[in-house]
Design a protein around this nucleic acid. Sequence first.
DNA 1: CTGTTAGCGCCTTCAC
DNA 2: GTGAAGGCGCTAACAG
Lengths: 355, 355
Amino acid sequence: MAKQGAAGSGGGASRRRRARVTLHEVAQEAGTSRSTASRALGGHGYVAGHIKERVRQAADRLGYVPDVSARTLKGRSSKVIGLLVSDLRNQFYAQLAAGVEQTLSDAGYQVVLVDDHGSEERAADGARAFVAMRADGVLLAPVGRTATELLAEHGTPVVEVDRRSGVRGCDAVAIDSENGARDAVEHLLGLGHREIAAVVDETEWATGKDRVKGYRAALRHAGVPYARRRVLDLGLRGRDSAAGDELPALLDANPGTTAVFAANNVVAELVWQELNRRGLTVPGDCSVVSFDDETWMRMVEPQLTAVRQPVFEMGSRAAALLLERLRRGGGRAETLILQPELVVRGSTSRPPQRG
Amino acid sequence: MAKQGAAGSGGGASRRRRARVTLHEVAQEAGTSRSTASRALGGHGYVAGHIKERVRQAADRLGYVPDVSARTLKGRSSKVIGLLVSDLRNQFYAQLAAGVEQTLSDAGYQVVLVDDHGSEERAADGARAFVAMRADGVLLAPVGRTATELLAEHGTPVVEVDRRSGVRGCDAVAIDSENGARDAVEHLLGLGHREIAAVVDETEWATGKDRVKGYRAALRHAGVPYARRRVLDLGLRGRDSAAGDELPALLDANPGTTAVFAANNVVAELVWQELNRRGLTVPGDCSVVSFDDETWMRMVEPQLTAVRQPVFEMGSRAAALLLERLRRGGGRAETLILQPELVVRGSTSRPPQRG
DNA sequence: CTGTTAGCGCCTTCAC
DNA sequence: GTGAAGGCGCTAACAG
């Protein structure tokens, strides 16, 4: 699989790390004291114009880059924000991270990324690392509550993204899952579907719970009876294993099913594949709606009807909220709810006529 | 789109950041000096067993977390590695980042993520930030050479991923693009195709250049003439705009085209959509091979024949190579070439018979 | 306007 | 075995 290639032009990697250029040397080069040099570069306090210029040039000439550790230690902000996601390979989190990164780097912050792979322990380790680095704040996408608590303990400002753990009221940004799910299911009901299955990942957090809530609300509102056996909770196992046989079992147990509501991109993928495997046509035999709209859903034929979540935006909004909190300091915790949007495409139609 | 939600349980976010617990306080609590406490926690030097225990407990009780800035300043490693990618929204880079993150966090390092959005300037800023943070090393995925040069200048170890800029021979990990492309095109030739179009993103870096090279090598080897007009270089514009009309123009100008080689996931997407738009069936009217295998390629019908790259692995290998370099210090620069693998699926078949 | 002084939190000699 | 002292690089007081 891998072979050792020819080495590069050589010698390069062997160059020893050069001694770092410090403010002291810049000052010497410019013929001033360190504090003056500091002021000249930092732009604070009084410095004569020509001196400032001289220092700047010296810094440039020497390739001076201020040392963040020293600055941070001195008590100023670290300009670091922690970002904890639970699976970067999932496009959802990748988009989220991209949104976060953009906003933060525009504001001059650095993003430290931790992927906990759904492990509460890794999440806690990440949180500790953020504290150790004196992160100015942290963004937390779904993980347990230990990380949140740990950070709260240390007084690090936290914004939760895509879920609300309810720990101390810290700030949060989330999608209106209940509403989105309700829209999706009402769309199916409006087309005439009555036996609608729901496939979920987890129902422990608000995210999953609310989607089921929305599903039930839509049914109730339409006077369609809710049946527990039509709801499958894969319990995060779906993420690793190939969902085993629970999904097939669901379909087998409910042969009358004419539509499936998939509560996120991971389960949508499983549903789509299972229907294909069975040779069922979509939407002819079975309609499908997904909560979350990924690339592949617009590439397949028919394209999937989906609840589009502004994921990138959610990331940048969360980052902005955190920055705002840093600026303002205290104050009431805020929760921002973003509305998703149902995009009707080809995977939903009227249910097949019963023979 | 967004509305202000109800505030949380209140007061939480307003808690002022508590004064950080320092080694000094731990020492006091344990009734020792700071140096002893330091040794006890660090596990270096001589400390009496019971004292060590006492210090540990004190630290626990107080929730002590050592300060990285101070440690870094003191001259020890920052335990930070920079990661620069050019587009986190692209699954390719997200996977790469995931691989990097996993390996580094397993090794106790923190990952600072910068997304330069293809801008050389942002890349340079990122590089400077890495230097400022005293990053122990940096991983660079495609960007110009300024970032690499800047880091080399400061003596920061760099591993280039998915491309080789050739700057000083720094370490690199890449996919064998030429071979992969050649495999893909030979597969098409083997099926009987003669008029094969190639669509590329860029030909400035080894990555794109080598894929075209592989394409040409396959043709040459099969004695099929190479025609410049069958090669389209979208020049990274494809990433932003909807590829404008260059792709349609390519197909119009080469009506005899029976197969397309798409040099990466971005162009593959464009090609797939364009063929669909034209109502051409795949592979009936036109075969398609993609370099890079994304989720959607296995969801569509027919599934795409693709050159699978071990992207996640490339990330973790690059990270491992960097760690190795940090351990060893100097030595010859190394380049690791990973072999991709052609996965034949449904989007390729024999060319249509000419009427 | 500029230089001197002090100290952020940690670790590492060096004496005891 | 343990404590005292110094300094990493920077900046905020304070003198001058």
